[in-house]
Write a protein that binds this DNA or RNA. Structure first.
Length: 466
DNA sequence: ATCGGCTCGCGCAA
DNA sequence: TGCGCGAAGCCGAT
C-alpha cells in the first residue's frame, strides 16, 4: 500500500520537460532521511515510471552559512546514517563536496528529471532558484518538512497562532497520513568510487580535512545526528517523558520535553511521522493535544514567517506597534549593559540567565521556557533593540544544534513582539512583553534548573542509549 | 491561588 | 463598525 503524495506538496520549479536522460536524480538537502521523505518517495516513483535508476546526491560545503565543528559533525553523522539506510533499500547516495547548487547542476547533467526537497531560508530558496534556471531537465520540488504546505495553509504572512491554527487544522486529515516506502525497480549506478565523492566511513577524517570554525565544540558524546538516533529519541520520549508533557513542558528544571528539535532541523525525522506516532501513542488527550500544538502550529507559524517575511533575520522587519514602542523607549536608561562577549561568557549578575547561556554553549540546547527569558533579558541589557536582535541571532545560530532554523528566526522575533500582543507599557520594552526572574520563580523552580544545567555539564550523558 | 486590568490589531460578524 | 481574543507577561487586590 502506497499513499499518494499530496499534489500540493509538489511544485515544478522550472518549465522544462522530463528529458530522455539516463537516470532520475534526487538532490537531497533538507530532508536527510530515508523514512517519511516525500521527495525521496516521489523520486523513486518517477524513476520506476521512467524505468530508470535513481541517484541521490547531497552537496556538502565548508562554506555553509554559520556552520561550525558542532553543526558539521551532526550533519555528517546524519549523512552517514541515511547513506547506509538508503543502501539497505538498494538506493545509491553520494555526498559530493561543493556548493549545493553547483553539485546539483552537475549531477543533473544526464538526468531525465531532478527532484529536490524544500527549505525556507533565503540561501535554501536561492539555491533551488539557481538550479531551476541552470538545468536542462525539469526540477521538481517536493515539500517534506511540514505537515501542511505553507502556501496551502495561508497565502500571506500570519500575525498570530490563532489565525494560522484553523487554516492548518482544516487540512490535517488529508496531510497527516502514512507514507510507506516504495521499492526502486531499477539498479543503481555504483558511482561510489568517484574521487569527488566524500567517504563518510570516517567522520573524523572528513572534519579534519575541512576549513571550519572549530571554536564551537563537538557534542557527539551527548547527541549524535541521524535518522536512527532520531527514532530512538522519539521512542524514548514516548516511553518515559511524554506522560508528563502537558504538565511539565514549561518546567525548565525537568527534562520532560521531546529533544527532537535538532533532528527536525536537520531533516532527520519527519513531522508527519512524529505526529502519527504521537496520535497513536494511546496517551492522555492533553498530552497529545499539547504536543501536536507545539509540533505543528508552533513550528509552522515561524515557517510562515520566514516564507512571507523577506527580512526575517533583521530587526528592521518589525513594523507597527512593536517597532514603534521599542523605538519610543530606545533611549531609556539601562540598569545593566553587557557586551556581546560578557553575554557569551555567561558573565551577568543573573544566575538563572547565566545557567541558560551555559546550557546553550555546553550542550547545544536550552530549555524552551528559558529561551524566552534569555532573549527578553538580552533585550533589556542591550543599548538598542537592533543590537540585541543581532547578538541574539548570532548566539542562537552559533551554539544551538537546532539553530539556523525558521524556528530560530521566529523565536528571536517573538522576543521583540512578533506573533505577540501589546502589554502594559514599561521602560525599555514599551508595550512588548516583559519577563522577570520573579515570574520564573512563581511558575517554575529555576534554582533547580541551575543545578540541573551544572550537573549536565559536569556529567554529560545521553538520555537514550544507542 | 486567582482575578481583573493593562494594551493592540486582526479577523469575522453584522 | 464593533467585538472577541490572544503562548509563555506583570502587578495589585482579594
Amino acid at each position: 500500500m502506497t499513499i499518494e503524495i499530496q499534489q500540493q506538496r509538489v511544485q515544478h520549479l522550472n518549465d522544462n520537460d522530463i528529458l530522455p536522460g539516463d537516470l532520475v536524480v534526487y538532490w537531497m538537502q533538507a530532508s536527510v532521511r530515508a523514512a517519511y521523505n516525500h521527495a525521496l518517495e516521489y523520486a523513486i516513483r518517477q524513476a520506476n515510471l521512467l524505468r530508470q535508476p535513481l541517484l541521490v546526491v547531497f552537496g556538502f560545503t565548508d562554506d555553509y552559512p554559520e556552520a561550525n565543528l558542532r553543526s558539521f559533525a551532526f550533519l555528517l553523522e546524519g549523512l552517514q546514517d541515511v547513506q547506509r539506510l538508503l543502501a539497505e533499500r538498494g538506493i545509491e547516495m553520494i555526498v559530493r563536496r561543493g556548493s549545493p547548487d553547483e553539485v546539483a547542476i552537475k549531477a543533473a547533467r544526464h538526468a531525465s528529471l531532478l527532484v529536490t526537497d524544500r527549505g525556507y531560508l533565503r540561501h535554501q530558496r536561492d539555491w533551488r532558484h539557481d538550479v531551476a534556471g541552470a538545468v536542462a531537465c525539469r526540477l521538481t520540488q517536493v515539500e517534506s518538512d511540514v505537515v501542511v504546505p505553507v502556501e496551502l495553509a495561508s497565502p500571506k504572512l500570519e500575525h498570530a497562532a490563532r489565525t494560522l491554527r484553523p487554516r492548518i487544522t482544516r487540512h490535517l486529515e488529508e496531510f497527516l497520513v502514512e507514507l510507506g516506502p516504495t521499492s526502486l525497480k531499477h539498479q543503481s549506478l555504483h558511482l561510489g568510487d568517484d574521487p569527488a565523492n566524500i567517504d563518510l566511513s570516517d567522520i573524523d577524517t572528513v572534519l579534519a580535512s575541512m576549513q571550519l570554525d572549530r571554536s564551537v565544540s563537538r557534542l557527539s558524546h551527548l547527541y549524535q545526528g541521524g535518522e536512527s538516533q532520531a527514532h530512538r529519541a522519539l521512542t524514548n520520549f514516548l516511553d518515559t517523558r511524554f506522560v508528563n508533557y502537558a504538565r511539565n513542558r514549561n518546567q525548565p528544571q525537568t527534562n520532560d520535553v521531546s529533544d527532537l528539535s535538532k533532528y527536525l532541523h536537520y531533516g532527520h525525522i519527519s513531522p508527519v511521522e512524529i505526529a502519527l506516532r504521537i496520535q497513536d501513542s494511546g496517551a492522555a488527550n492533553d498530552n497529545i493535544d499539547t504536543f501536536l500544538e507545539e509540533l505543528i502550529i508552533r513550528r509552522e507559524l515561524p515557517i510562515n514567517f520566514v516564507f512571507y517575511q523577506p527580512d526575517y533575520d533583521r530587526f528592521s522587519h518589525l513594523s507597527g506597534w512593536a517597532r514603534r514602542t521599542l523605538e519610543d523607549h530606545q533611549n531609556d536608561p539601562r540598569a545593566y549593559l553587557y557586551t556581546a562577549q560578557q553575554l557569551e561568557h555567561a558573565e551577568t549578575h543573573d544566575d538563572y540567565w547565566n545557567a541558560a547561556m551555559r546550557e546553550m554553549v555546553h550542550t547545544g540546547y536550552m530549555h524552551n521556557y528559558m529561551r524566552m527569558y534569555w532573549g527578553k533579558k538580552v533585550l533589556e541589557w542591550s543599548a538598542t533593540p537592533a543590537e540585541a536582535y543581532r547578538v541574539l541571532l548570532k548566539l542562537n545560530n552559533k551554539y544551538f544544534l537546532d539553530g539556523r532554523d525558521p524556528n530560530s528566526y521566529g523565536n528571536i522575533a517573538w522576543i521583540f513582539g512578533q506573533h505577540d500582543r501589546a502589554w502594559q507599557e514599561r521602560a525599555i520594552f514599551g508595550k512588548v512583553r516583559y519577563m522577570s526572574a520573579a515570574g520564573l520563580e512563581r511558575k517554575s523552580r529555576p534554582a533547580e534548573y541551575v543545578e540541573k544545567v551544572e550537573q549536565k555539564i559536569r556529567q554529560p550523558k545521553i538520555t537514550y542509549s544507542p
